[in-house]
């Protein structure tokens, strides 16, 4: 296997050819903020949280291949400012009322907001009106929190072979839909065993009768900030997320 070396914030990081900046950074336990990236799925580069500066240009670390001699800026005030702005846009676009969310404390969006010290939404709230889908006996879909990362879409299509989810619409009208004539989750073959049931980084796809089971203080990001959970992020698997 041919390898190369790049610099991330001045630290030499070796990689195997074909690896992305994100993969190499993860292997070297260097945290690059990310939302739509998941080690198990083909990267799609849509959330832009992982934006780094590689040899002077802004690129998505999750889709850009590492190159020998590349100089990557990652943890800089400039990039973290931009990432914080992206988070603020995600927060105002949906309805993210953390105290009422079952995913609070285990949510990547929230954990990244803590990591990047997002103190305010800064922009005007959209307050969209998105009804929830509680039709399924075992799952609740709260679309108010969807950040359109397409992890559920990818998992259901590529792993479960079911195609339960899709994104519809364009631009600001883009939204998550359920592939059933009725549009209801109950009318699909979605089940507890699906990979897609356990992949949402925020609080959209929620297992019923499981809410608030873990007390505050013991949730995933209560003790250790996300930026220091490199092993957990790299090992995200069906098991870990159940």
């Amino acid at each position: 296997m041919t390898t190369g070396t790049m610099l991330i914030d001045g630290v030499p990081v070796s990689f195997e050819y074909g690896q992305t900046i994100m993969e190499a950074a993860m292997a070297a336990k260097i945290f690059i903020p990310h939302l739509c990236h998941h080690p198990e799925f083909t990267p799609q580069g849509s959330c832009k949280l992982c934006t780094v500066k590689a040899s002077g240009r802004y690129v998505s670390a999750c889709t850009m291949s590492a190159k020998d001699g590349m100089e990557v800026e990652n943890n800089t005030p400039d990039l973290n400012d931009k990432r914080r702005t992206l988070l603020q846009m995600l927060f105002v676009e949906g309805n993210h009322f953390c105290p009422s969310c079952e995913k609070s404390g285990n949510c990547m969006l929230q954990a990244l907001a803590y990591e990047l010290e997002m103190l305010s939404p800064r922009f005007e709230q959209f307050f969209p009106n998105r009804p929830v889908d509680a039709s399924h006996p075992d799952f609740l879909l709260d679309f108010n929190r969807c950040i359109l990362c397409e992890l559920c879409v990818r998992a259901s299509r590529d792993v479960d072979g079911k195609n339960v989810f899709a994104l519809a619409g364009r631009g600001i009208h883009k939204h998550l839909i359920v592939n059933a004539r009725s549009g209801q989750l109950a009318d699909t073959d979605f089940s507890l065993q699906d990979r897609a049931a356990h992949v949402c980084p925020v609080g959209v796809i929620l297992e019923k009768r499981k809410g608030f089971a873990v007390p505050i203080g013991q949730r995933q990001y209560d003790e250790t900030p996300i930026g220091q959970q490199m092993d957990e992020l790299a090992a995200r698997s069906a098991k870990a997320e159940e």
Binding site: F97, P99, S100, L119, P121, Q125, F127, P128, N129
Partner: peptide, 17 residues
């Protein structure tokens, strides 16, 4: 601004829809 309600509307804003 102190607390969720001042910052993003919080619980009272659940009536916004």
């Amino acid at each position: 601004a102190i607390g969720a309600c001042a910052i993003n509307g919080g619980l009272p804003a659940l009536r916004n829809s």
